[in-house]
Every structure is written in C-alpha cells, then in structure tokens.
C-alpha cells in the first residue's frame, strides 16, 4: 500500500511536483500518464530517493513507513523497486556480480540467507529464460553494450529476482519494439498478485494494452488532474492531453 499525500518536490530549486495525492492499494497496478515535463520521472525519483530530487512537503507512506525519510537502499530493502527509464551502464561491474550483490543485499535485509554463486546462477537462468534473455548477458558489464531492449529486460530481470512489493516502472516501454514490449509486459504480469503493486509510468497508452492497470491517473503540471479506470488511457490516446488540460 502506497499512500502519497500532498507531495511537493523540487529539482534545482524549481517546483516540479505541486501536491500529489495518490493511493495505490496492495495488489493493484496503477498507471500514471502525462505529457513530457509533467513530473512523471520526478515522482519516480522522489519515491526511490535519488539525490537532487527533494521532497519539500507532504508525505509518502509505504505500508505505513515514511518512505521519504529512508535511504535509497532502505527503500529497496522495504520492497520498493524502480525500473529506470535509462538504465545505467556500469563498466567493470559484471552483471552476474551486480545481480547477486543486489539480491543478497535484499535477502540480508529481509533476514533471509544469502545465495551462493551456484544457487544464484540457477535462479538467474530460470528467470532469464522467462524473459528470453541470453545467459551471456550475465557475463558482460552491467548494461554495457546492451541494446535498448536488453537494458529494459535487464531491469525486469532485476525486478523478477528482487521480488519487490512495489515496482515503479518509469517509461519502461520507451525504445522497445513490440516483441520486447510483450516480453516486458509478461514479466510484469507474472509478478501480479495480492502482494505486488505497481506504478506504471508511461507517455503512451500502448504499454497499457499489455499491462492492464486497475486505475489510470493523469499527471499534468505536477498534479494528478484526473483519475479513472483503464478506459481513461484509451480516451487520452484518442483525444490527447490537450483535451484533459482544457477540461481541468
């Protein structure tokens, strides 16, 4: 359960979020749609704790915990996962090492035993197969030399391994062809269940054909200006954000 109340935030001293109110109940997938510059990515960064994205007011509670007071790694340990719009390349850090370090950090935080290299490989291969990923991607540097689609699949792989309670997918559909989009959507849909919720941030309705949300929210000018069912996404696709803006 994610409860955001009156959240305001600024970047470089410029107000971007101007009072967000949003509740994502456990087990639900919500979409946030909005034009460029509406604050979508800022919201994802504020929720995951990136430096330079300062919350200036309001609150964000995750299962009752004050998310904004936590370090990024504490949020991850609590079960928050951000799938990056632009996954970072880490030359010199092997993807397998990275994935295992992350998984074991989360397992440690949950009080579970760490996986050794063999146990990890078995699990990783299983998850990768489901995402049509090549084993060889474990051997490379994190996201180094990955195509756009491979990077996004690597994000979904991380999600599948870390098993978060809340996934924030920041424009995960950008730069994906339709086959990759389906694979990514399948990866997210496979996670759906009573203990998983997601905030799917997207510019286009296309992704929502494959990940059908329980609710759709429209973010414009740093505020949620409309909320509705899955049909709202289709309405946006047909009429554009301008119509919403005029009505708001």
């Amino acid at each position: 359960m994610l409860e955001i109340k009156g959240l305001t935030a600024e970047v470089d001293g410029k107000p971007i979020l101007k009072g967000i109110d949003l509740v994502v109940p456990q087990g639900e997938v919500h979409a946030i749609m909005g034009p460029n510059g509406s604050g979508k990515s800022t919201l994802s960064y504020v929720l995951s704790g990136r430096d330079g994205y300062e919350a200036t007011g309001g609150e964000a509670l995750f299962h009752g915990q004050d998310l904004l007071a936590m370090e990024p790694e504490e949020r991850a340990a609590a079960g928050v996962f951000l799938a990056f719009q632009y996954p970072v390349e880490l030359p010199g850090v092997g993807n397998a090492t990275f994935l295992r370090t992350a998984l074991n950090a989360i397992r440690r935080a949950k009080g579970e035993s760490e996986l050794d290299a063999m146990q990890f490989l078995k699990l990783a291969r299983e998850r990768m197969k489901a995402l049509s990923m090549n084993d060889e991607m474990l051997k490379r540097g994190v996201n180094v030399g990955f195509s756009g689609g491979e990077k996004k699949r690597n994000e979904i792989l991380q999600m599948a391994l870390l098993q978060p309670k809340l996934a924030i997918l920041d424009e995960t559909d950008s730069g994906l062809d339709i086959d990759a989009l389906k694979i990514v959507a399948d990866g997210v849909n496979a996670m759906r269940g009573p203990n998983f919720s997601a905030l799917v941030i997207t510019h286009y309705q296309r992704l929502l054909d494959y990940i059908v949300p329980d609710r759709v929210h429209v973010l414009m000018g740093g505020r949620i200006v409309r909320s509705g069912g899955p049909d709202l996404a289709k309405e946006l696709e047909a009429q554009g954000y301008g119509a919403i803006q005029a009505a708001a």
Partner: peptide, 15 residues
Amino acid sequence: DADSLFYLRSRGVPV
C-alpha cells in the same frame, strides 16, 4: 558517478 551510485543503492546495495 552519482547515477551509478544511485543505481546500485536503488537495488538495495548499501552505500
């Protein structure tokens, strides 16, 4: 690199 550091931390890796 701040982005790299954040990426790792966002995956639960302590700073």
